[in-house]
């Protein structure tokens, strides 16, 4: 069985882009020159996080009570860790009588948590994409490069 891979097929992993993509969703793609794609990703992921925090309040991120959800949410990076920090600092320590209006119940909490979890999982997909992203292959250029590789 012959090895059909050439040197051009080898994947070079861009760790800097992955870290940047985790620090701020979309920044990984921007750093490899895919600015338009990166800013669209940034807008989409941050829109989901914004909606989640708006619907569920900052209680939508809670690594103590919603640990499994937090595993999905944390792929959004420091923005989610910051929301969790705010929750643990300002809401979690309050007595039940004081935090009754601050903690999401039923659908508000579920949807808020789900919004941010979906944002995290989508950013995980984005990070997988940026692993093999080629420098400067924005929208039109990526399709041309795919055609070249196919031919």
């Amino acid at each position: 069985m012959s090895n059909t891979y050439s040197n051009n097929d080898s994947i070079s992993i861009n760790f800097t882009a992955i870290v940047l993509g985790w620090l701020l969703p979309g920044l990984g793609h921007v750093s490899v020159g895919q600015k338009r794609r990166g800013f669209l990703i940034m807008g989409g992921v941050l829109f989901l996080v914004f909606c989640g925090a708006l619907v569920g309040g900052i209680d939508a991120v809670d690594h103590n009570k919603d640990g499994l959800w937090f595993i999905a949410q944390v792929w959004c990076g420091p923005v989610v860790i910051g929301i969790d920090l705010l929750n643990q600092t300002f809401i979690a320590p309050l007595p039940i009588a004081d935090k009754v209006t601050l903690v999401g119940l039923s659908h508000a909490n579920e949807m808020g948590t789900l919004f941010i979890a979906m944002a995290g999982l989508m950013n995980f997909v984005v990070l997988l994409d940026v692993i093999q992203a080629k420098r400067g292959e924005d929208f039109e250029l990526r399709s041309h490069a795919q055609d070249r590789r196919a031919s």
Binding site: L40, G44, F47, L48, F115, M122, D129
Partner: peptide, 16 residues
């Protein structure tokens, strides 16, 4: 939610 997911996913997959 669907709009946000679509914005991110199509940004990765769309060619033009």
């Amino acid at each position: 939610m669907v709009f946000g997911i679509s914005v991110v996913y199509r940004a990765l997959r769309e060619k033009q």
